[in-house]
C-alpha cells in the first residue's frame, strides 16, 4: 500500500502526502493480526500457568492435611517403616511410615538409571558417530516405538517374563525391586537414548575435525571430545530418564510385589510411592486419614519431580557451550 502511494506522483504532492499520513496512522491488517497472535498465545500461557499452579497448590494443601489436621509428625512420616494408615505401630506411633516406599522408589530409579546409562550411551554413539546411516534407518524407529509402547504392556511383559525369570534364577517370589528395575530399564532406555542422540548431534563437526587433524583416532575423538563436550546433555538425558522411572506407576506396580515393607534385598516384595498410590487410591474415603496419607505420598512425588526439573535447568545452565 505504501509502495503504491510512493509511485503515484501524478496525483500531486500534497494529496499524496495526506494519503500517506492517513495510511501511516491507520492500523494495518497485519498489525492487528500481530496483536491478536500475541494476545492469543499469552492467553494460552496464562491458562496453562493457572492449571499448573492449581495442581501444585491443591496437592500441597491436600498433602499437608495429614500433618496439620491429623497431627501426624513429619518424622513419623519420613522415618517410620510401617505403613498402615489409621492404625498404630507397636511402639505407639501412627503407622504412616513412608520410608519403605521412598527407599523403594529411589532404589528402582537409581538402579534402572545405572543399568540404562551405559546401554543408552553405547546405542547413541553408534547411531550418531559410528554408523549414522544405519542408526537413522533402523535404530531411530526402534527407539521411537519403544517410547510409544503403553506402560501396561511393559508391566504385562514384566509380569509374564521378568518375574518368572527372577523367581527361577534367584529364588523368592520373583516380585521385587529387581524385577521393577528390569522393567524400568527398558522403559527409560529410549528416553535416555533419544536425548543423548540429540546432545551428541549438537556437538559441532569442527570439534571432530580438529581432533582428527591432531592425529586422534575416531574412538579417541568420540571418547575424549564428543562425549566430553556432550556431557551436560547426557546428564540431562539421564535425569529425564530418572524422572520417568520415579514417576512410573502401573508397570512397576505390576512387578514389584506391593508390600509396604522395607526392602532388605532386591528380590523381596517391596513398593514404591507410585505403586502404593495406584493400589490404594480406590480404597480410601476422601477426608479420611488413609486418604490424606496418600496425598502426602503424592506431595513427595511432586516435590521430587520439581527437584528433577530444577536439576535439569541447573545442568543446562552450567553446561551450555558455544556452537
Amino acid at each position: 500500500m505504501i509502495g503504491k502511494a510512493k509511485y503515484s506522483k501524478d496525483r500531486g504532492f500534497s494529496m499524496d502526502n495526506q494519503k500517506l499520513a492517513k495510511q501511516l496512522m491507520k492500523k494495518s491488517k497485519t498489525a492487528r493480526y500481530e496483536r491478536m497472535g500475541k494476545l492469543g498465545s499469552l492467553a494460552m500461557l496464562l491458562l496453562i500457568m493457572v492449571i499448573v499452579i492449581g495442581i501444585i497448590v491443591f496437592v500441597t494443601s491436600k498433602g499437608l492435611t495429614m500433618f496439620f489436621s491429623d497431627h501426624i509428625s513429619f518424622k513419623d512420616f519420613l522415618t517410620g517403616t510401617l505403613w498402615n494408615p489409621g492404625t498404630k505401630t507397636p511402639s505407639g506411633h501412627p503407622a504412616v511410615g513412608a520410608l519403605p516406599m521412598i527407599v523403594g522408589s529411589f532404589l528402582v530409579t537409581i538402579l534402572a538409571a545405572l543399568i540404562s546409562t551405559p546401554f543408552a550411551i553405547g546405542t547413541a554413539v553408534y547411531m550418531t558417530e559410528i554408523s549414522p546411516k544405519r542408526g537413522a534407518k533402523i535404530l531411530q524407529p526402534v527407539t521411537e516405538l519403544l517410547v510409544g509402547i503403553p506402560s501396561v504392556v511393559y508391566g504385562f511383559i514384566g509380569l509374564s517374563l521378568v518375574v518368572p525369570f527372577v523367581r527361577n534364577t534367584l529364588g523368592g517370589s520373583g516380585f521385587g525391586i529387581l524385577s521393577g528395575t528390569f522393567v524400568l530399564f527398558v522403559m527409560i532406555l529410549p528416553t535416555i537414548v533419544s536425548m543423548t542422540v540429540d546432545s551428541l548431534k549438537s556437538v559441532p563437526t569442527f570439534y571432530h575435525q580438529a581432533s582428527l587433524a591432531l592425529g586422534a583416532t575416531q574412538w579417541q575423538t568420540i571418547w575424549k571430545v564428543v562425549l566430553r563436550a556432550a556431557t551436560p546433555g547426557i546428564l540431562t538425558a539421564i535425569v529425564f530418564g530418572m524422572a520417568r522411572a520415579f514417576g512410573e506407576a502401573l508397570a512397576v506396580q505390576m512387578v514389584i510385589g506391593n508390600a509396604s515393607l522395607m526392602p532388605h534385598n532386591l528380590i523381596s516384595p517391596a513398593s514404591t510411592l507410585t505403586s502404593v498410590l495406584t493400589a490404594g487410591m480406590g480404597n480410601t474415603v476422601m477426608g479420611s486419614l488413609q486418604n490424606d496419607a496418600l496425598w502426602s505420598l503424592a506431595l513427595v512425588l511432586l516435590l521430587m519431580s520439581l527437584f528433577f526439573s530444577l536439576l535439569v535447568h541447573f545442568i543446562g545452565r552450567r553446561g551450555s557451550f558455544k556452537k
Binding site: 569442527f206 570439534y207 580438529a210 581432533s211 587433524a213 592425529g215 586422534a216 566430553r228 563436550a229 558455544k322
Partner: peptide, 20 residues
C-alpha cells in the same frame, strides 16, 4: 593416518578450540 596428521598439522578457518 595418526602419524601423518601429527606430522602435518592443520589450523582451520574458524577458531575451533575444544570447550575445555
Amino acid at each position: 593416518l595418526v602419524e601423518l596428521r601429527k606430522k602435518v598439522g592443520m589450523v582451520f578457518q574458524q577458531p575451533n578450540p575444544f570447550p575445555f
